[in-house]
């Protein structure tokens, strides 16, 4: 609200000097205070404008997604939307878990243990953001009819990145593993993403 006064007050501090000896310091102090008030006021007034561009309350209210996982059979995956992004929730088979665990870390581009990518005692459940870390395409492999790539996970059709059953990058141009979103198990059948 005080943006207009800022520059004016800023100029005056340097310029006005009616060379009267007494009171000169007091006057300088006064001008300095006025300049500071202008600057602070302008800054405070700017904040609502800037902050209005941050996510609004209705947007934030949708920043978590609760997913019922009771109906996902072993070997199946579902896709849910979370913060406008697809999230893959896969119910892994024992084979798939073994496969993910057996991999030697040195064979990985983005070195990460499978145990670091799932919740303890919930190893059957893999939750990853379904966005290829190369250039942001959505990998395929969610539906039985789709290719799961050379490593049984996902395959990105855009530039041929292959992900394994832990969602880690194994082959192709993508630099990083599929991201694991923050999530927690609310119960055995309900997870909350976000």
């Amino acid at each position: 609200m005080t943006a207009g006064s800022k520059s004016q007050a800023g100029i005056v501090t340097g310029q006005v000097g009616h060379s009267a000896d007494d009171g000169a310091t007091r006057r300088d102090f006064l001008f300095l205070t006025a300049g500071s008030f202008g600057a602070v006021g302008a800054g405070i007034a700017a904040w609502p404008l800037v902050h209005s561009m941050n996510p609004a309350k209705d947007t934030l209210a949708l920043s978590t997604t609760e997913v019922d996982i009771s109906k996902i059979e072993k070997g199946q995956s579902i896709t849910v939307m979370w913060q406008g992004k697809p999230v893959f929730v896969r119910h892994r088979t024992e084979d798939e878990i073994d496969q993910a665990r057996k991999v030697d870390l040195s064979a990985l581009g983005d070195k990460q243990e499978d145990t670091a990518r799932v919740k303890k005692d919930r190893e059957a459940w893999l939750v990853v953001v379904g966005i290829c870390t190369h250039l942001g395409c959505v990998p395929v492999g969610q539906k039985p009819s789709e290719s799961r790539g050379d490593f049984g996970g996902w395959f990105c059709p855009c530039h041929g990145s292959h992900y394994d059953t832990s969602g880690r990058i194994r082959k192709g141009p993508a630099p990083k593993n599929l991201a694991v979103p923050p999530y927690e198990f609310l119960s055995d059948t309900l997870i909350k993403i976000g």
Partner: peptide, 17 residues
């Protein structure tokens, strides 16, 4: 409150000048 104090200061500045 802020504007009143600021206005007071500016009144003093204006008078000085």
């Amino acid at each position: 409150m802020f504007l009143l104090v600021f206005a007071g200061i500016m009144y003093a500045v204006k008078r000085k000048i």
